[in-house]
Amino acid sequence: MSDGVLVGPTLTPPAAAPTRAVPRRGRVLRRLLRQPVATGALVFLLLVVLVAVLAPWIAPYDPDQQDLIGRLAPPSGAHWLGQDDFGRDELSRLMFGARISLLASLQAVGIGVLVGVTGGLLAGFVGGRLDGLLGRLVDILMAVPGLLFAITVVAVLGPGLTTAMLAVGLLLAPPLFRVSRATTRAVREETYIEASRALGYSTRRTVFHHVLPNMVAPVLVQITILLGLAITIEASLSFLGLGVQPPTATWGSMLSDANAYMAQAPHLIYVPGAMIAATVLAFSLLGDGLARALGTSRFAVTEKS
């Protein structure tokens, strides 16, 4: 035939259509920076990260240095945010607490991505019984109250940052699983996936060249939102004494310590509480802005169980 589809006795399969790849990084950044709210959130988060990284050099005091004479002292020229119940400098502990809170959220989301995205990719691409089995496991995990599940895991394995973040990571896996599975299911039905199979491409090449590029945008937006959620859960566990153990400073443990002295020193609870709220809000606003910059939506990916 003259159209080039049928040549002699052999059939020439159509060329694979290009994937709907994520926009170039420069274009995404320009779109993001055009949004004042998202830009403000990004600047705030960058400042928090910078302070966390430079805390050993810019903190005015050792975060664990005690001064019992100055315990519960209000803000002053020597201690801008006051001193806690052991006389430790609140500003220094806030800076070092940012390191632990950010590290904990990265660990938790990393575990969630490893478990959730991998499971969603397998379930969506392979389908069948594997899809049903993994889907039911995720439904069971989502049916368990999140904080109760985390407390149970920490109680069994022992308190500590690694244990707490393992529990939080498992809690964050289901939404990533659902997003990944829904995206993979949608991409699996596209013409270029059939063309790739007809051309004899391996499953690995098809997944890495066609499926994963389409998952980047929704998964990246979901990760941004979950980073803020991980900070909240870590602060809750530390507040209950199940996260990082004393005397290590975290925002949650600072809230827990200040809770007993709200009447004598209410200033101790304001700053760590405000930092948790502002950081979580910044991650949420950045996720909204990133969704618009990538041309997707936080709530665009849905699926039927």
Results as ranks from 00 to 15, higher is better:
A265I: 05
D257F: 08
P247S: 08
N259A: 09
S256F: 01
G252Q: 03
M254T: 03
A230H: 03
Y270E: 00
S236G: 14
A265R: 04
M262L: 15
Q264S: 14
G241E: 11
P266H: 08
Y270N: 00
E234T: 05
H267C: 00
L237D: 09
T232D: 06
L237M: 13
S253V: 09
L237C: 09
L240C: 05
M262P: 00
T248D: 15
Y270K: 00
A235Y: 01
P247L: 07
S256I: 00
A265T: 06
G252V: 05
L229W: 11
M254F: 08
T248L: 15
L268F: 01
M262N: 01
P266R: 06
I269Q: 01
A230Y: 05
I231C: 04
I231W: 05
P266K: 05
Q245T: 11
L242I: 11
L242Q: 12
G243S: 13
I231P: 03
Q264A: 14
G252C: 07
P246V: 06
I231A: 04
D257K: 06
I269H: 00
T248F: 13
Q264F: 13
I231H: 07
A265Y: 06
T232E: 11
T248G: 03
Q245I: 06
P246D: 09
T232S: 13
L237S: 12
S238D: 15
N259R: 12
A230S: 11
H267G: 03
S236L: 08
P246G: 05
E234P: 01
I231V: 14
H267R: 06
A260L: 14
M262C: 01
A235P: 04
F239P: 02
I231Y: 08
G241N: 10
E234I: 02
T248P: 05
G243H: 09
I233W: 13
V244C: 02
L268D: 08
L268S: 02
A260K: 10
S238V: 01
L237N: 11
L229N: 10
L268N: 04
Q245V: 07
